[in-house]
Every structure is written in C-alpha cells, then in structure tokens.
Amino acid sequence: MDPEDIDVVQPLDRERGISLEDFKLIKMHMSNYITKLAQNVKVRQRVVATAITYMRRVYTRRGLTEFDPRLVAPTCLYLAAKAEESTVQARLLVFYIKKMYPEDIRYRFEIKDILEMEMKILEALNYYLVVFHPYRSLTQFLQDAGMMDLMQFTWGIVNDTYKMDLILIHPPHLIALACIYIASVSKEKDSIAWFEELRVDMNVVKNISMEILDFYDNMMNNIEERINIAFSKLPLRSA
C-alpha cells in the first residue's frame, strides 16, 4: 500500500476536525491499548501484531466516526486471536476492558457489541486475514548475522513499529532489517558488511529506519496530552 492511501482522513472524520495527526495518534493509542489488553488475556505477540494490523487495515477503509476505535481495538484482538489459533473468549475481553477502564463509560461494551463489530470488521477487511510479520525473518536474520545478543533490543523496536502504519506499507522482512539496522547502529555493532551481502535495497531499509527514528523523536513531546485532545474530537457513542 502507498502511504497516500493510508493517510487519508475520512470525510466524516474531517468534518469533526480530526486532523491526520490526530488520526495517527488515535491509531497509535489504540495499538497500545490492544497491546495492554493482550497482556491481560495472555496471547502471543504475533496475535497482537495481527490485531493491530487488522485495526490499521480497517481504518484505511472506514472512518473513526463510523467505527469507534474503542470497540474496534478489542474486536480486532478478538478476531486476530481466532485467526492465529489462540481463541480468546469475548467475555474475557469485556471483563478486562472493564477492569482497565472502570470509570469510563466510553469504554463500556457488551459481548454483543464485540460480536457485531467482528462481522463488520470481517467485511471491512474484505475477508483478507493473512498477515505476515517481521518477527520470523528477524530471528533468521539475526542468526545469520551472528547478532543474537541484539535479539531483545531489536524485538522491542519491531514491537514499536506497530505504533506506525509501516506494516501496511513495507514488506515485513524489510521492516525487520530496518530494526536490525537501528539496533546495530545504536549499539555500535559493525553490521555493514553483513548488510552489503544481502540483496536488498538498502535505501528502502534506511528510509524505514528514518521513519522509525522520526517516530521516536515525535513521541517525546507531551504525547499524552495530544492523544487526549485527539480523542476529544471523537463522537460520543449514542448508546
């Protein structure tokens, strides 16, 4: 996918004053939300990654106003868990959502809401459910490069890439390479020779790395506040 197709704020959202920046922040926040929720229900990282990818795919076609992200996020996790063979019960998700946001009425959902949303998400995804992730190639690359000591650090960076739309734009193995690149540079490992042996376009890898680094920079300044502002622009559920 091209970034131009992804960074589109749907007309109805734009009407509500949601900017591209807000759109990205909300998606990022929802990615974190999925991750936290997943920690509670204990599913593997790949399920989380798939769930986030589903969520991002959905919002390339549907607007935030139309599909409430607070509901889309848990539902994507629910669907991804099924697709990745580690089914999580809907009532468990509902339980943990309540636990995470005991006061917040905007996060109050019933099992029925999740099941309904699941259907809508399946439709929005046009039933394309297979997602590939950088994790597998990451392990292979690190093994090949003999840099297994960087595993944990790099794995963390890969996890962070899901806070962006990278997974919709670039092939997973290039994302993995970019993360290895960042890791090796910041840990001052000499990996240039190894990268040169690979038959990949290093320009793309470097571009992805730059995007990741830009993202980290951007994260620095009062992110919480900006997220809150972005969310305030979302419509309240007419329950």
């Binding site: 669907l79 099924k82 697709a83 029925k112 099941l115 399946l122 039933y127 394309y128 459910l129």
Partner: peptide
C-alpha cells in the same frame, strides 16, 4: 456460547482468500 464467527470459518476464509 457467544463466540461469534467460528474460528474454523475464519481459518477457511483466511486460506481460501489467499
């Protein structure tokens, strides 16, 4: 038991779509 779309169906769709 309120578990939505059956995982079997999901897997089948997943593969056939590809």
């Amino acid at each position: 038991d309120g578990d939505g779309v059956s995982p079997t169906a999901i897997r089948e769709i997943m593969l056939l779509r590809e």
